[in-house]
């Protein structure tokens, strides 16, 4: 199976301290990795490192496919309508995904295309973010707490989208501490330890 993303001994320094122990990781087509661990153990940092938003030190990350990152922040412009936001994302990341209206319908926001994104509820904003994943095809999805602020149906929707994505030879790394993703057997779990009390100097 094709390796889509590989990390070699990556860690990240904050104020001179490593956020977590250096770790190796590889994502293959059709594979999902669930990052687990208590608050503050560096789940978000790890995903941002994999996405290329942060530069690892030490270590390095190799990306062999287009990557999408969905974090705590919605990544959309509140002043623009849902459809305009998706239209922008589609053009920005490449035109090969779903049409904005179809993506909206897929995540349960049909008919809200003309609503400004700031007028959406927290859960609806999450769904808009998911729609953003669908408008441009990217093989690697890095999702930080994709289940946050979603209702049960929303959680199921995430599972469905993930299953579909994995079925199309995509791969996913996601962090969660509420719902466990129910997306079949191809899930690998990565437990991250709580940060130590810091070396005495």
């Amino acid at each position: 199976m094709a390796v889509l993303l590989q990390a070699f001994g990556v860690s990240f320094q904050r104020a001179g301290q490593a956020v977590f122990e250096p770790l190796d990781l590889s994502l293959k087509a059709g594979q999902a990795i669930v990052v687990l661990g208590p608050n503050g153990c560096g789940k978000t940092t790890l995903l941002r490192l994999l996405a290329g938003i942060l530069s690892p030190f030490p270590g390095r990350v190799e990306r062999h496919a287009a990557t999408a990152f969905l974090g705590h922040l919605p990544g959309v412009k509140g002043e623009l309508t849902c459809r305009e936001n998706l239209h922008f994302l589609r053009r920005f990341h490449g035109m090969d995904g779903l049409e904005p209206d179809r993506a909206l319908a897929r995540v349960g926001l049909a008919g809200l295309g003309l609503r400004p994104a700031r007028a959406l509820s927290a859960g609806q904003k999450r769904r808009l973010g998911l729609a953003g994943l669908l408008v441009a095809r990217r093989k690697v999805w890095l999702l930080d707490e994709p289940y946050a602020s979603l209702d049960d149906a929303g959680g199921q929707l995430v599972d469905e989208l993930l299953t579909e994505h994995l079925g199309q030879d995509g791969s996913v790394a996601l962090s969660t501490h509420q719902r466990q993703p129910q997306i079949g057997p191809s899930v690998e779990k990565l437990h991250m330890a709580a940060p130590g009390p810091g070396e005495p100097s």
Binding site: G71, L73, F92
Partner: peptide, 13 residues
């Protein structure tokens, strides 16, 4: 920076 669209600049090609 505040709405997260800036970090998307580092993704992709």
């Amino acid at each position: 920076l505040e709405d997260g669209t800036l970090e998307q600049w580092w993704l992709g090609h």
